[in-house]
Design a protein around this nucleic acid. Structure first.
Lengths: 339, 339
DNA sequence: AACTACATTTCAAACGTTTGAAATAATTAG
DNA sequence: CTAATTATTTCAAACGTTTGAAATGTAGTT
């Protein structure tokens, strides 16, 4: 039973022998429309499975009720969990969400931005790729009056943008403090790609915790890696290279890096392996399957980050906050102790 | 520099003192438009950052160039990887993708379907929730002439729909065969929720491999679980309960279930634990972090499943295949041996 | 100069909605 | 019974595009 004449307002109007505007107003529950008329229209609409055409409405209303999200990828549970927060709140408020992955590639990010611009999204939430230095493709949005909220990965040097961030400083501070409280004196820090802005915040959290607890900082105890395995292995090798200055604990930038580190330490039969305590950002269910799980995880509450991002965005869209009145929202991390 | 008069064709036309249609045709590279005119128009358009309004185009063209995807959730790497295949091919062909999660909840699935219908997606790709029995909310699409492709999770009993599936029978057969070839005689099968259609296909793959290799089937060696941990543990307990009929190998429905099983077997200090060989569907990078990894994984090639789904969908949209000419596409699995 | 042929541009309607203003119908008041 | 008031419906324009048909412009031919 494939229907070929599309069911539009006009079609309903003809069936009901009334004008298009009456039908429209009846469906939108205008007070000036007679109750009986409304009933007739609504019945006919549901009988014929009338579905309003969003393109037409968007054109008329000059908005799309679509929120765009650009993020590096969907394989990272941080991002997929954050989407959950966004989606939840967006749909509650009548907005749809278009998700676009940049695969951490600037070129792809630009493409995504352009397509979302053409789609006239009402707002944009973006976690930039690790190579994004130039922001012309994202500035376009604000130039057209479309608000942009950067979340997690953002242009750190730029104060003229809206941001929603995990309080990664606090998370790292807390984790380090936790290890100190457990008696560790030599705590290694394994950081992430230096291009990603919050790498430094995390490092500062680590440093400050040491300082506040009168522990010396040693450059030997700090290394950086990107998400490449080889790279991580060589970084961790370096951290544990000096027998004079052997760490007894480790704070790692992110889960896969943490896992790589743990795996490596086991593989070399590190003499005091059992005494080494590790913590990393991220808190996936996979941890429960590890034989040597980290002692604790830094839960970043991605759902809450997403939710705060969409909340701010909707306030900007509704002009409850001026688009030039740049906001910065921080979402605290929580230390989850395992076992 | 927030621009308030929107840059439309009309605006460009006024600036250039020519008609709207000339501008439109120039931008769309009509052969009847003078080359010099085209050049002027295109320059002006890019100077003023003209972005065509998709709502208007959609309204005119009666299509949205949007593909909808409904899937249970984004935390399962099968789905996120499949999205990659869809997105890739869709954007290449000028389509955008709206992803909507049902969270395996029928109510939410219906909501998603309705919103995608209102958005006038040109086609729908859907993996149904585990509770979907009634399909009215999805049949709407076909009734309006919008093609629907079911992928992975689909109404198994229904032949009147387009399907793209992993060849889960072949995958399970191959895995079982692999274990048989390694000398196992007592191979346990730990299946997934019976509501999910391909649970049975997998089981049949297992059974057929046994049969083809003259191994007896024992009901004691088969158990089912949903994704609940408790449930899985009790299922695996049952499988390994009878000392007379102790399995030496296991084929598991899906990765987290497989991991739960392995973890349990280790935890009880099963005497011959080291000899038990496990295989499961799924092939995530986490496997490399396990101390007792499965001997092999059944790689389901989700990207390829996604790609086949969108390819079929686009053929349906372009009417290269009649919408009533129901297709079934199978994507083979590949056994990945670890270590 | 008049005609043809072709190149180029413009007109005008259409897509499906929304909405203030105008028109009409129904009711009430005098 | 007419005028005023109120309830209800309709008109018409607008949103930003696309596109076949019509109009205009230009050049070439006789």
């Amino acid at each position: 039973m494939t229907n070929n004449t599309p069911v539009t307002l006009k079609f309903l109007a003809e069936k009901l022998k009334m004008s298009v505007s009456t039908v429209s107003k009846a469906l939108n529950n205008y007070p000036t429309i007679n109750e009986y008329t409304k009933k007739r229209v609504q019945e006919m609409a549901s009988d014929l499975h009338f579905t309003p055409n969003k393109s037409a409405i968007n054109l008329k209303e000059k908005k799309s009720r679509i929120i765009g999200i650009i993020l590096p990828n969907l394989l990272d549970h941080f991002f997929t969990r954050s989407i959950y927060g966004v989606e939840q709140f967006a749909t509650q408020n009548g907005y749809n969400v278009i998700i676009s992955q940049s695969h951490d590639d600037l070129e792809k990010e630009i493409q995504s931005a352009n397509m979302l611009l053409r789609s006239r999204v009402d707002g944009l939430i973006v976690a930039i790729s690790k190579n994004t230095q130039d922001f012309a493709h994202l500035d376009q949005f604000e130039n057209m009056g479309i608000p942009v909220v950067y979340y997690t990965r953002n242009p750190s040097f730029n104060l003229s943008c809206h941001k929603v961030l995990g309080n990664t400083f606090q998370g790292c501070y807390q984790a380090t403090k936790f290890l100190i409280d457990r008696g560790h004196k030599k705590i290694a820090y394994l950081g992430g790609p230096k291009m990603i802005n919050f790498t430094h915040d995390r490092f500062n959290g680590y440093i400050n915790a040491l300082k506040d607890n009168q522990l010396p900082f040693s450059a030997e105890l700090v290394a950086y890696t990107d998400f490449d395995k080889e790279n991580t292995i060589s970084a961790i090798k370096n951290l544990f290279a000096n027998p004079e200055n052997m760490p007894t604990a480790l704070v790692a930038f992110k889960e896969p890096i943490l896992f790589d580190a743990i795996k490596y330490l086991r593989s070399i039969n590190h003499p005091k392996f059992n005494e080494i305590e590790c913590i990393g950002f991220g808190n996936t269910s996979f941890i429960s399957y590890l034989d040597s799980p980290p002692i604790a995880s830094i839960e970043e509450n991605p759902e809450s980050v997403g939710e705060n991002a969409i909340k701010l965005l909707l306030q900007l869209i509704n002009k409850e906050i001026d688009i030039q009145n740049y906001q910065k929202v921080m979402v605290d991390c929580k230390l989850i102790v395992h076992g």
